[in-house]
Design a protein around this nucleic acid. Structure first.
Lengths: 147, 147
DNA sequence: ATCATATACTTAACATGTTAAATTATAAAG
DNA sequence: CTTTATAATTTAACATGTTAAGTATATGAT
């Protein structure tokens, strides 16, 4: 039943497949560390984006963290309850809210950052630092080209 | 609240972030087509892998399609009910099963393949054919280097 | 043959993803 | 000032992801 009726590449060699497989390979060593810090991958993305950008409205946060609105609602409810994120009304828009990292939240990011940077260094050593930077750059260029 | 306390890159410039964002950008135009064909992204991965590899046991299928075992169980139940996949006992192992594409399932893959190939061609035109092939090749090299 | 262990799933339980509809508030037009 | 339309979230409903426990079969050692 081999594929000889068309030009479709084997899934792992396709663009979508290679991107998914690469992401999976990259995340495998990182996930245990996040679990140890008590955050899921999605919660960590929210915290990271808030650390990057400071106080942010929810829509921007969702886009930046590559999450859907309802997921952000649910994740923030949890992070606020745990005191990692602070939520305030948006002074310029009565409908929306603004969230930012608490001191505890920032501390969590700083702790995990040490680990992720270390992991990145391992990847750099195995794959080549310049090569890795170029790969990231190409990924961003692809995104820009598609949009 | 800018990030100046450590060397963590902004999320979109990080390896994990760039991979996730790139995958998302690539899939956005493809998802509506899959929805039109009546399959989810994960179901489509299962069908694609079966088209690549022919009759396959469930564990291999899960690994190839980047899915967990329980997801494969659930997805196959649906695909078999809809007549896209055929399930047979494994003659060499009484515990397991072997699944393969039905004629209908193969027809679905062939139809959608035309669309995905067309989309790939658009990406090639926008990003460069050689450049795109090289990107995929680098992704695979990264996976190999990490493991 | 029997016991212990490992393997291939399946089931169950809960978190998250995803879409659509509901809610509340701003904004624009008349 | 109302009416209408648009925007920011939340709620609800269901699919899928994810982990852990359960079931049945195979494998290996005594």
């Amino acid at each position: 039943m081999k594929t000889n009726h068309k030009k479709l590449l084997p899934y792992r060699h396709s663009l979508a497949g290679a991107l998914l497989a690469a992401r999976e390979a990259v995340m495998v060593p990182i996930r245990p560390m996040l679990a140890g810090a008590g955050v899921t991958e999605q919660q960590w993305r929210v915290l990271r984006v808030l650390d990057d950008a400071g106080p942010t409205d929810l829509k921007t946060l969702a886009e930046s963290a590559l999450l859907f609105g309802p997921s952000v609602t649910r994740i923030l409810k949890d992070l606020v309850e745990r005191g990692l994120v602070v939520r305030q009304p948006n002074p310029h828009d009565g409908r929306g809210a603004i969230v930012s990292l608490s001191t505890t939240g920032r501390a969590l990011i700083e702790e995990t950052a040490a680990h992720t940077i270390q992991q990145l260094n391992i990847y750099s050593r195995k794959f080549g630092d310049k090569r890795l930077k170029n790969l990231i750059s190409e990924l961003q260029a692809l995104i820009a080209a598609i949009e």
